[in-house]
């Protein structure tokens, strides 16, 4: 994709930083002309991906860092989140059975489904010790 603008932030792997991450995404997506509905989808998808990294890749170790890169071109935005923690497999992107989970008083498993539902494309990659998730949202 031909880049027109890129932005970067490195944040400690703590849920304390969730609002900061959402603000970072929102600020740049709005200034790049994304409509508010798409900005909301992006913020939620990135929130869910970042939360999964904190919990599953870094096991809540806030000394670890997550790199977040934004790339805009004339067709789309790509948000790339990179960590150096445990790679975790995405077992299923199926809609979770909420009724079943409620009966069992279980929660979780909703983030991955939401990410795939809200984004136009999602890619995962592991290179050596580095894990990467790329979230794509089209302008149109």
């Amino acid at each position: 994709m031909k880049k027109t603008a890129t932005y970067h932030i490195a944040v400690g792997a703590s849920t304390e930083n969730l609002a900061k991450v959402r603000d970072f995404i929102s600020e740049h997506a709005v200034s790049e002309g994304f409509p508010s509905g798409k900005v909301a989808d992006l913020c939620l998808a990135v929130d869910e991906a970042y939360t999964n990294i904190i919990k599953h890749a870094y096991n809540n170790d806030s000394s670890k860092v997550v790199e977040i890169d934004l790339e805009f071109d004339d067709k789309q935005i790509c948000v790339c989140l990179t960590d150096q923690g445990e790679s975790f497999s995405v077992d299923s992107v199926e809609k979770p059975n909420i009724e079943h989970q409620v009966k069992k008083k279980k929660r979780g498993g909703m983030g991955v489904y939401l990410i795939h539902k809200l984004m136009d494309d999602v890619n995962y990659k592991t290179r050596g010790r580095e894990n990467e998730i790329r979230l794509y949202k089209n302008r149109e």
């Binding site: 909420i98 989970q101 279980k106 939401l114």
Partner: peptide, 10 residues
């Protein structure tokens, strides 16, 4: 976010 929905589920 889904963590909020999770509280209602639990």
């Amino acid at each position: 976010a889904s963590a909020g929905l999770g509280v209602f589920m639990a």
